[in-house]
Amino acid sequence: MIDLKAVIGCFFLLTGLILMLYQLYTDSTDLLPQVNFTTGLFYTVFGAILLLIWKLDKKKA
């Protein structure tokens, strides 16, 4: 069976990276207050945490 944590983690990691790169491409100044960059950063961290949990679970099993 697939691990849903990994799937959701991947989805948000990719979405977050897309949003951050888009913000970098359109406006590279004052990134952090920008909605796309801030939200993208949050999604990326959230996705990475889920992937980390999945990895740790896999190791334990």
């Binding site: 849903l4 799937v7 959701i8 989805f11 948000f12 909605v35 801030t38 939200t39 949050f42 959230f46």
Partner: peptide, 21 residues
């Protein structure tokens, strides 16, 4: 069911920034 869980996170995290803004 798996898709519902993905959709749950997407709905919550997709609308949460709107609430903040």
């Amino acid at each position: 069911i798996y898709n519902e869980v993905l959709q749950f996170f997407l709905i919550v995290l997709g609308i949460a920034p709107l609430v903040y803004l």
